[in-house]
Measured scan of single mutants.
Amino acid sequence: DWREIAKLAEEALKKQQPVTVNGQTFNDPNEIKKLLETAQKAI
């Protein structure tokens, strides 16, 4: 669910920690931002 992904990505950016989505881990803040943008577009 994109809403859940957006929430996870936002928290990861705030806490500056990696986030795992669908078994894929994102460590890079730039990648997390991209993930968040993608999720927000999909909602």
Rank of each mutant, 00 (worst) to 15 (best):
D1A: 10
D1H: 14
D1L: 12
D1Q: 11
D1K: 13
D1M: 14
W2R: 02
W2H: 04
W2T: 02
W2C: 05
R3T: 14
R3H: 15
R3D: 09
R3S: 13
E4T: 12
E4V: 11
E4Q: 11
E4M: 13
E4S: 07
I5Y: 03
I5L: 07
I5E: 01
I5D: 00
I5C: 03
I5R: 02
A6L: 15
A6F: 14
A6C: 11
A6E: 08
A6N: 02
A6Y: 15
A6I: 13
A6M: 15
A6K: 09
K7Q: 12
K7F: 13
K7I: 12
K7D: 07
K7N: 09
L8G: 03
L8T: 05
L8D: 04
L8N: 06
L8M: 13
A9E: 00
A9T: 05
A9Q: 00
E10V: 08
E10Q: 11
E10C: 15
E10G: 06
E10M: 14
E11S: 07
E11Y: 05
E11K: 06
E11D: 11
E11W: 07
E11M: 07
E11I: 08
A12T: 00
A12H: 02
A12P: 00
A12F: 02
A12R: 00
L13V: 04
L13S: 02
L13G: 02
L13M: 07
L13W: 03
L13H: 03
L13Y: 04
K14R: 13
K14E: 10
K14W: 09
K15W: 13
K15E: 09
K15N: 15
K15V: 07
K15F: 13
K15S: 14
K15A: 08
Q16E: 11
Q16N: 15
Q16W: 08
Q16G: 15
Q16L: 07
Q17C: 04
Q17H: 12
Q17W: 12
Q17D: 05
Q17Y: 08
Q17P: 05
P18I: 06
P18C: 07
V19G: 01
V19A: 05
T20D: 04
T20Q: 08
T20H: 09
T20W: 07
V21F: 11
V21Q: 01
V21E: 00
V21Y: 09
N22K: 08
N22E: 05
N22I: 04
N22M: 15
G23H: 05
Q24Y: 11
Q24A: 05
Q24T: 11
Q24E: 10
Q24D: 04
Q24K: 14
Q24N: 09
Q24L: 13
Q24R: 13
Q24F: 13
T25M: 09
T25V: 14
T25N: 05
T25L: 10
F26R: 01
F26G: 00
F26C: 03
F26W: 11
N27G: 05
N27Q: 11
N27F: 14
N27L: 11
D28L: 04
D28R: 03
D28S: 10
D28I: 03
P29W: 09
P29R: 12
P29F: 12
P29T: 09
P29A: 10
N30E: 15
N30H: 14
N30K: 14
E31A: 09
E31N: 04
E31I: 10
I32F: 01
I32R: 00
I32Y: 01
K33Q: 14
K33F: 09
K33V: 11
K33H: 09
K34Y: 07
K34P: 00
K34G: 06
K34M: 08
K34N: 10
L35F: 03
L35G: 00
L35A: 02
L36M: 07
L36Q: 03
L36V: 04
L36N: 01
L36A: 03
L36H: 03
L36K: 02
E37Q: 05
E37T: 07
E37H: 06
E37V: 06
T38K: 12
T38W: 14
T38S: 12
T38P: 02
A39I: 09
A39N: 01
A39W: 03
A39T: 03
Q40E: 09
Q40I: 15
Q40N: 14
Q40F: 05
Q40S: 08
K41H: 11
K41G: 08
K41R: 12
K41W: 05
K41S: 11
K41Y: 06
A42I: 14
A42Y: 14
A42G: 06
A42Q: 13
A42L: 13
A42C: 09
I43K: 03
I43L: 10
I43G: 05
I43T: 05
I43M: 10
